[in-house]
């Protein structure tokens, strides 16, 4: 079964008087356990496509399926439930909750899901260890480096074993060493947890990690390449 299926989706924005086609009749299927990179120059439509897959943005037309469930016609609340149950997000700007510690940030999704305190604690500690943040669990975001914060964001995205992780420019604010470590982590999680990863990037080093590279330009898919991951 496909983890993600987009059927002929379109999305148009108005920028002043100008109409921008962010997605122009895009159709893709992403298999479960896939590791896909969406590559495009700025304004190419990769973030819009990622947001449409994540239910953060609703396309003007077309259909979006996640785990076989159509999501483009769901209500705001149902979309929230879907994201909570099935999707993990990693954002370019880390986007951690500043008043919570690293562990509490990781636990946040599980807490909203209603997981018990003991189970939350065990899972969050294990995942923080897995992403190499053992000993930093009680630090707040402001007390951590960019790389450490992004690792917390990754831990938060995968801790509840989502079917799908969507990462938007996850290495944009990281140095090359930290970027490599993060992508190694993604690869490991993809292989060990069979989690589907869709990563939007224009970083060629990141693209090298993907099993499949989808290139976009002006809201359209211009190339779809199966490749051997690094």
């Amino acid at each position: 079964m496909n983890a993600v299926q987009c059927v002929d989706i379109c999305k148009t924005y108005l920028q002043g008087d100008q109409e921008i086609k962010a997605l122009d009749h895009v159709s893709i299927d992403i298999a479960e356990g896939g590791f896909v990179c969406l590559s495009a120059p700025s304004g190419g439509g990769k973030t819009t496509l990622l947001n449409a897959i994540g239910g953060l943005d609703i396309p003007d037309s077309g259909e979006v399926y996640v785990g076989g469930e159509r999501i483009d016609n769901l209500s705001k609340g149902d979309l929230a439930d879907l994201r909570l149950a099935k999707i993990g997000f990693v954002f370019q700007a880390y986007n951690l909750i500043p008043v919570l510690t690293a562990r509490e940030n990781v636990e946040f999704v599980m807490q909203v899901q209603g997981v018990s305190a003991n189970a939350r604690r065990q899972k969050s500690m294990a995942i923080l260890q897995e992403v190499g943040l053992e000993g930093l669990e009680d630090r707040r975001p402001a007390e951590m480096s960019g790389g450490q914060q992004q690792r917390v964001a990754v831990a938060r995205a995968i801790v509840s074993n989502p079917e799908l992780v969507l990462a938007d420019e996850p290495t944009a604010n990281l140095d090359s060493r930290t970027s490599s470590e993060l992508m190694d982590l993604f690869t490991e999680l993809n292989e060990t947890h069979a989690t589907t990863f869709v990563v939007a990037t224009h970083d060629k080093r990141v693209m090298a990690y993907a099993k499949r590279l989808i290139k976009m330009l002006d809201g359209r898919i211009v190339d779809d390449i199966q490749q051997k991951a690094a």
Binding site: G54, L56, K76, G77, A80, D81, L82, R83, L84, A85, I87, F89, F91, N95, I97, P98, F108, V109, V112, Q113, R156
Partner: peptide, 16 residues
Amino acid sequence: VREIGLMMALGMRPGS
């Protein structure tokens, strides 16, 4: 605003 958006993106319902 950003944090509220983040919490919604992570699956928090508007009611919460």
